[in-house]
Design a protein around this nucleic acid. Structure first.
Length: 566
DNA sequence: ATCGTGGGCGCG
DNA sequence: AAAGCGCGCCCACGAT
């Protein structure tokens, strides 16, 4: 991702002014209108492609989820954008500047389900000229907020967020190569023979019958939590819930088959044959990504459970013939971000190499890798009890700067304050209800029960803000990583071999999947090494863009393989 | 029939 | 071995 100085790049706002009608407004260095081009929807893709090839401007879009999807369907890709909806969400709440962007309902994200039909709703009572004025005013307001932030952090964040908006649409169009036969084989192997009409697969029937027999109820409906709980009590298993963890603590013949049944049941309902039929078409799984869909800046997804694919199905992710996958993830991204944010050199030393937890053990803070893991997770999540909570104070001695950062974030949250990520995405204000409860608890004659509740809610919010700064900064690293990968892949020439898929990514290496700290690329075999190098370079660049010369390792686990199986 | 909620569990 | 953060989705179940 290159970030030219403001004014040094061409910027063109692409504005929908009426159904089937667009206006492209070219802006000068002061974001003043320079020229205007009227476009019919039918001509849009061709015009954008020509301008992109000639000038590679930064396209100012209402949001990629609306405009870019249709361009991609017409085979047109763009390089850079400024996504007004995505950036509005960041800029209206940022604590990085004294005067954040005024919130404006017209620039809120819309539900994906209505995004496409409502593409023109915002303008239904406005003339085309009003739509243009509204868009340009919003862009100028955003530009002013971005420029007011120190160190260009919001420039980087908004550029990366906008790139994420493009990438999410591109990954949806490209899809994740998915081998339906492999998926089907895994299901049959795990669940048993597929039922012909309704009913459950054979292994589930067998195991379910065994569970019912051991519970002494031949007609028990195992999917009913309440009935199952009562049946367990009847045979003397005194659990309070039917959760996996609590069941595992009990010793009764029914536990083992019951846990096995629950595992199978989960696979069937979440990613069984019905999921396969609904979400995989022509060898591609196409999830709906929602960039910035989580308050911390992480991506969310809608439909298909894209971010919850069970590891057991990874073998079904298979490259097309003549293509390969580049699969890369970062180990322990969040604590690495924490070490760098806090300039904690001791923690950064522990983070050298591929296993941060081993480094924590080497520092002498804890005795085993497992303890290191629970201590570090506990530090970032705010654990206070259990083994994890007991280990956290040891880290405070060895990594005082890192711990001071998360402890301060927790205190700020407990006091009702706002915290921010490294680049300036800020946490939401606590709710009015939360504020009222805290106010009620500070009175001299406050009910002790109210005080206790307020304390608990304050700590809850403190754990959220504690984690926000770390999870959100990790999301920023990943976003820049993604954008840099995309930028590098665009330099790799297309292949001339016969394409195995259709669409704008049929002949080029492309991102196919993203999951918080992991990417999967789908790449013509001849470009596998170049793509892998792009992924590594991009990671190094992401780290430098965020933390300059601070020495923090962010090592990748990267492999080139036909399948995503680990 | 449809909606909201809670339990449970997959992912990071 | 822990239960501390962030999600989305499925199911049952009770309310509408």
């Amino acid at each position: 991702m290159t970030l030219p100085a403001p004014g040094a790049e061409r910027r063109i706002a692409l504005i929908s002014v009426a159904p089937q009608e667009y206006v492209a407004v070219e802006l000068d260095g002061n974001a003043e209108e320079q020229s205007r081009t009227q476009l019919r929807a039918d001509d849009l893709a061709e015009w954008v492609a020509a301008v992109e090839a000639a000038e590679a401007p930064r396209w100012i879009l209402r949001t990629a989820a609306e405009t870019y999807a249709s361009l991609l369907r017409d085979g047109v890709r763009i390089g850079r954008s400024h996504d007004l909806v995505l950036c509005h969400a960041i800029l209206r709440d940022t604590a990085s500047v004294t005067a954040p962007l005024p919130a404006s309902a017209g620039w809120e994200r819309r539900e994906p389900a209505v995004a496409i039909p409502s593409l023109f709703d915002v303008f239904e009572e406005a003339s085309g000229d009003e739509a243009i004025d509204t868009t340009l005013d919003q862009y100028r307001a955003q530009r002013d907020v971005i420029a007011a932030a120190p160190d260009g952090r919001l420039t980087l964040l908004c550029a990366a967020e906008s790139a994420g908006g493009l990438i999410a649409e591109e990954m949806r169009v490209a899809g994740l190569p998915w081998d339906e036969a492999v998926h089907d084989a895994i299901l049959t192997e795990t669940l048993g023979t597929r039922p012909v009409a309704g009913g459950l697969p054979s292994r589930m029937v067998e195991i379910g019958d065994r569970v019912r027999e051991l519970l002494g109820d031949a007609t028990l409906h195992l999917d009913s939590q309440q009935k199952l709980l009562r049946a367990l009590h009847r045979v003397g298993v005194q659990v309070e819930s039917t959760g996996r963890w609590e069941l595992a603590e009990h010793d009764h013949p029914v536990i083992e088959p019951l846990l096995a049944y629950k595992k199978l049941s989960r696979l069937l309902s979440a990613n069984g044959w019905a999921w396969l039929a609904e979400w995989v078409h022509e060898g591609r799984f196409r999830p709906v990504y929602i960039p910035g869909g989580v308050v911390t800046g992480r991506w969310a997804s809608a439909g298909g459970g894209a971010l919850q694919l069970p590891r057991s199905l990874r073998p079904a992710v298979r490259a097309d013939p003549g293509w390969t996958l580049v699969v890369a993830d970062v180990a322990q991204l969040e604590p690495r971000m924490l070490a760098a944010m806090a300039s904690d050199e001791a923690m950064a030393r522990a983070a050298q190499g591929s296993d941060l937890y081993a480094g924590v053990v080497a520092s002498g803070a804890v005795a085993t890798r497992e303890e290191a893991k629970y201590a570090v997770l506990g530090a970032m999540y705010g654990a206070t009890t259990g083994d994890s909570g007991r280990l956290v104070p040891r880290l405070r001695k060895v990594y005082p700067r890192a711990m001071a950062l998360v402890d301060a974030a927790a205190r700020t949250g407990e006091d009702g304050g706002i915290v921010s990520t490294w680049l300036g995405r800020s946490s939401p204000r606590p709710s009015g209800e939360w504020m009222r409860l805290q106010a009620e608890a500070t009175g001299a004659d406050a009910d002790p029960a109210v005080v206790a509740l307020a304390r608990r809610r304050a700590r809850d919010w403190g754990r959220f803000t504690r984690n926000f700064v770390v999870q959100g900064t990790a999301a920023e690293w990943s976003l820049i990583w993604l954008a840099e990968i995309r930028h590098r892949l665009q330099q790799i020439p297309e292949v001339f071999a016969e394409a195995t898929a259709s669409g704008p990514f049929a002949r080029v290496p492309h991102l196919a999947f993203f999951l918080h700290d992991e990417v999967i690329l789908h790449v013509p075999q001849e470009h596998a090494d170049a793509a892998a190098e792009a992924v590594r370079d991009a990671a190094a660049t992401a780290t430098t863009r965020l933390f300059g010369s601070f020495p923090i390792d962010v090592p990748l686990d990267l492999r080139i393989a036909e399948s995503a199986e680990k």
